[in-house]
Structures are given as C-alpha cells and as structure tokens.
Amino acid sequence: MNAPDPTKIKLDLDLTHDRPLVSCKFDPTGKFVFAGTESDAVVRWDLATKTKTVMVGHETWVFALAFTPDGKVALTGGCDGRLVLWPTSDEKPAPIRTIDAHTGWVNAIAVSRDGQLAATVGNDRIARLWSLADGSLVQELPGHDKPVYQISFDLTGRYLVTADLQGRVIQWDLASRKEARRFDAGKLYAYNGGQQVDYGGVRDLSFSADGTLLACSGLIEASNPLGAVSNAALVIFDWATGTEKILLRAKEDLKGVGWGVRFHPSGFVTMLNGGNGGGILLFFQPAGPNEFHKFVLPNTGRALDLHPDSMSYAVAHHDGHLRTYRMPVKATA
C-alpha cells in the first residue's frame, strides 16, 4: 500500500440525493458506496459511473449498513427494527431476506470475518447474532442497560464488541457466547441533571490494523445536550489490557460530536466531527493528544467510512451529498 498524505486531502466525488443522508459505507470491493437517508430509501452509488440506485425495503430511516466479507450481500438495519439482506451489485436490488431483528431501531450491524454470522444492536438494549445462511437467531446477548449504538468483531474473529449510550463497552467471547470483559468509555457519556437527559455514548468504533488498539468516538463536555453544546472526542483503549490509553480531542473547542472514526492502516486515526461546529475531519496520531491535521468539510457530517483502498473517505452529509475525500500518495524524499 502506498502511504497517503492526509494533510493534502481534498474533495474527490460529490454525489447528490434529494434528502439528508444519515449513514454511509463502502462495499468491500470498493465499487459502490451506500447511504441511508432521512426516508425509507437506501441509496447506492457506483463510484466509477456515479449511477445512483434507490433501494426500498424498509419502512423508515436506515442508520446501519454492513457487507459480507466477499461483498456479495449488503445488510441494512432500519429504525423499523428490520435487518434486510440485499444482493450488493444487482442492477435493481430487491431484498433477499427480511428479519424482524429488534424492537425499535437497529443501530449497527457487523459481519463476522468468516461471513457466517451477522451481529446487530439496537435501542432495545440487546445484541443479537444471526445466521447468514438461513436468517435464524443464533444468540441473544443482553448486558447493556441503555440503547446499544455500535458493534464490531475484533481482528481475530474470536470476540465481538458492543458499545452503548452510557459508554459501556462489552467484549463478548464468541465461543462461549458470554461476556468476557468490559471497557469503560464513560467519559463519552453525561447525565445532565438540569435537563434530565442522558447524552453521549459511543457513536462509532474502529480497531487499528494490527488489532492492538480500539477507538471509540463520541463527545465530551456536554454542558447543554439539548442545545448541542459538546466537543467531539476519541477514547483509545489498549486491547490487550482493556485499559484506556489516551483521550484524543481537537486543539480548539469545535462544538460537535465524533460521529465516525476509522483507524488507517498506516497508523493514524481519523475522526469525523459533526454538529454546531460544522463538518470537520480530524487526523490524529494514536499518541495524541491533539490532531496533526484538520480538514473543514463543506457541510456537517453524520457518518464516515474508509475506502478499501485506504486512500479516500466517504462522508454522509446533512445537505444530501455523499462526498468522498481523497488523500494523495505521500511524496517520498
């Protein structure tokens, strides 16, 4: 892989839709980017031709997107509680299977590295494992007390990680289907007594390429949750010990939420800030504590993904645009 230069990142593709976007994900082949919208439609763009395909299989918004490792099947999770499987590259994709997966929203989906299991989490506070072969429920994993926002398999495939509104991160052993240990990302959570609301939580998860670090994105300093006064932050855990390594945050008070995080294979970690401070990509070294580069986006961002070629990011924007931002190859001395 050629090492990219994030300090020279710039807008690459600008793909448009008529509704605000809420989620985005590249397919594993890198041919498509999918987005959930403020409607019942999921949108697929062919990155080479910019052809847009609208897929309707849910009753309402779709925040959760994932793919099987071979890229053949796309999985979408809706606020209707449904998990829907699609043929990723069909000209006019129609649902292969629909599963009533959760009571309330499906917040995130992950697929195991062997492609056998799908894992989902939702506002019903439960993680569930599903057989991708027949759509059957394999296991329920209760353990969270608040809505569960994110999920990821670790790099070994032995563990599953789920994270919730309170910043509780649970590591599940897939062999025993039991809780293995907990991480505390409570720094990303606040209860505001004046407003009487819970706020924050783990909005996104990412493992480093070598599997030694786990990044949780979210927010800190939530002095006014109902008014969106908070700052985006990342909590980096040492996966071996389960302890917090560092909290990463912007040098300035940018006012926002860390809606997305992706470790880059070359070692740095990228966070998407979205909110009152606008859309901003922040690039950190894991040792932090602040960004080494900041890239201001044309509109606030709501979701982030890294292309399989590791050279560009997709951001789902409120203005209905799916923009990709490309990093050039770093110049060698």
């Binding site: 309330g104 506002n123 809505p147 407003q195 009487q196 609301v197 819970d198 706020y199 949750p225 109902l226 008014g227 969106a228 909110g275």
Partner: peptide
C-alpha cells in the same frame, strides 16, 4: 415532565422522554 426542548438529537431524546 422534563425536558423536551430538543434542538439537538430530537429523536433520541424523544425516544427516552
């Protein structure tokens, strides 16, 4: 019953409230 002044993340807060 407090608080519904949801200028931010209206849906998550209404879900709870």
């Amino acid at each position: 019953h407090s608080n519904y002044d949801t200028h931010n993340e209206n849906f998550s807060f209404h879900l709870e409230q």
